[in-house]
């Protein structure tokens, strides 16, 4: 199954690499959120007297600037939107008949599902990394703590990758289940915004009403966001921060395991003969 999964994944990635323009919409979203949203909605400017740097730091979990806080959230947002709309390629594969060609080949249906998951994950993690770089280079952007190293970077992107993997399972199974792009877009629009707004991607959940806080606390986006943000803001973690980080990662691993199983069975059903 691995050889067939890789063959299908490489096919999708070759197409993606040969069409650099496909990366641009995702890239623009990153730039707009960080440079425009991050600057224009900077909470430090919301009241006439302004917040002191201490107040900003307290409000945003120790982040020295709002964009430092926002970066992890924007990357989560990029993951959600691009995973969701990445399924369009799979719907097109069905509509153009390519999927039927694959279905008449003697390969496990799981190879189609896992190649969908893998190709989306690679594409979106690349965008996530570009977003991180953009946050670093824009004026008044991401400020990394002293001593932020490779291990921290691995921890940050490991958290994002776990979230991405879970999301990719859900949206790949969804894309394989629908028959038209319209249906996919309708469902995706219904799912993505609540997922983002019911997390602390854009604002700390401490300011949310209790009911929303409860939902945000179990939202995997909040967990990935929190884990990545802990490292982005603090670099080396204290033992209590490390414990929070470890809990978030374990939670994400559990979510990924559940979503992989659900996605796998949903895709198997969607790909079975009708």
């Amino acid at each position: 199954m691995i050889a067939e999964t890789m063959a299908l994944t490489f096919r999708a990635l070759k197409k993606w690499i040969r069409n650099p323009a496909a990366v641009l919409p995702g890239l623009f979203t990153s730039i707009f959120y960080l440079a425009l949203f991050g600057s224009s909605f900077n909470p430090a400017n919301l009241i006439p007297s302004g917040f002191s740097s201490t107040q900003i730091s307290q409000t945003f979990g120790g982040a020295p600037t709002y964009i430092t806080y926002l970066t992890a959230g924007v990357i989560c947002l990029i993951l959600v939107f691009n995973m969701a709309f990445g399924g369009i390629d799979l719907v097109l594969d069905r509509q153009l008949g390519f999927l039927n060609t694959v279905l008449t080949a003697p390969i496990p249906r799981a190879a189609i599902f896992f190649s969908g998951v893998a190709q989306n994950l690679v594409k979106v993690m690349f965008l996530a990394f570009l977003t991180f770089l953009i946050a670093l280079v824009i004026p008044n952007g991401l400020v990394l703590p002293a001593g932020f190293g490779v291990l921290n970077l691995i921890g940050v992107f490991g958290s994002f990758a776990l979230l991405g993997l879970g999301l990719s399972c859900v949206f790949t199974a969804l894309a394989l289940s629908v028959r038209s792009i319209d249906s996919l877009v309708a469902i995706v629009n219904f799912l993505t915004l609540p997922l983002i707004f019911m997390s602390d991607a854009l604002f700390p959940s401490s300011s949310f009403p209790d009911w929303l806080k409860t939902i945000a606390n179990v939202n995997p986006i909040t967990k990935a966001d929190e884990a990545a943000r802990l490292l982005i803001v603090n670099g080396n973690l204290t033992s209590s921060q490390l414990s929070t980080f470890a809990n978030d990662v374990l939670y994400l691993v559990g979510v990924v395991a559940i979503l992989t199983i659900i996605g796998y069975f949903a895709a198997e059903k969607a790909l079975s003969a009708q």
Partner: peptide
């Protein structure tokens, strides 16, 4: 199987 749709990938 050679389907009636043209399923070869344009970008490859």
């Amino acid at each position: 199987v050679v389907p009636q749709e043209l399923t070869a990938d344009d970008e490859l």
